[in-house]
Design a protein around this nucleic acid. Structure first.
Lengths: 165, 165
DNA sequence: ATCCCTGCAAAGGGTTTGCAGACGC
DNA sequence: GCGTCTGCAAACCCTTTGCAGGGAT
């Protein structure tokens, strides 16, 4: 329980993450370039989801000079090292998220304000078991996304729905 | 129970679907063009998932003349009429599937052979309820996809894993 | 000094759009 | 005949690729 909190804190700490990344780069014989570390830093010092274009703009505003090509390239390494996860919500551009993958979690996206809610769902694990029993399918990962209306937007526009009695 | 079977048969029947589509076109004041019906027919007389390019080739081989633009356009109508659902697995092209949406279902995709398994999961509905209670989020739809190795591919390549005792 | 990595720009693939002609209404 | 739908091709967006120069090792 408290161990999880510790881990989570480590995740938010750039130095710890930097070390993990360095080990990954050493292990896979990739060069430790300043661009790669500045990208990692930018990702880990900001909360939430982001796409490549957003990250590109953010880094540009922070006086870093990185090309989109390098961003795509580096995201690949971060994905493989498990420091980042990638989501493909709908048909728009891919969304990335910092994560050490200790806790796979799921998402609910508001169709009005595009807000993303994150939550953990142990029952998904049970569904996985059923999948194995029924089809012999061994799941290694999953994606669960709910689309709907969040609480705030529910209050705003659909107040009439509530009155219905 | 048996009613479901009846419904399912109706779904597979082009004439029944044609009528539903016609009603939709009337209701929404869209024109009933031959292209739209031939697309609907092509979709409903073949099983499984497909993408636009596959559908385009298939129709070309069947002496139908439709452009990709019309396919995209018509898919939009079929989506809105509930006769087709759209999936975005990964970052490749969108996958479509015939469906009257009586039974929303989920998918498991084999990372080796790309086979898609379909299954229904009532527990997802329970997760939806939790989402409403916890965050006040009203889900209107969802997407649940498992990635892993199917039974067949498990036998092929990972036989060693089974022996482990 | 090697040769991987970077930045730039062009190419690529899927989807959308603009336009002129066709045809459902 | 009016106004929408079609086919074609160009435009579009996100992502990948090719190439020459630069920097990590």
């Amino acid at each position: 329980m408290e161990k999880n909190a510790e881990i989570q804190q480590a995740v938010d700490n750039y130095d710890a993450v930097k070390q993990i990344f360095t080990e990954y780069l050493n292990r896979t014989k990739h060069r430790k370039t300043p661009e790669r570390y500045s990208i990692l830093k930018e990702i880990y010092t900001r909360p939430g989801h982001f796409d490549i274009e957003t990250l590109y703009i953010r880094m540009k505003n922070n006086r870093y000079r990185v090309s989109r090509a390098t961003l795509y390239n580096t995201m690949e390494l971060l994905l493989e090292s498990g420091l980042v996860v990638k989501h493909q919500f709908g048909q728009s551009s891919a969304q990335y998220e910092k994560c050490l993958c200790f806790q796979p979690h799921d998402h609910a996206i508001c169709l009005k304000c595009r807000k993303v809610i994150e939550f953990c769902e142990p029952r998904v694990g049970e569904i996985e078991k059923t999948l194995l029993q029924t089809f012999g399918f061994r799941a290694s990962s999953h994606s669960l996304v709910f689309y709907g209306i969040c609480e705030d937007c529910s209050k705003d526009g659909q107040a009439d729905f509530e009155k219905k009695d």
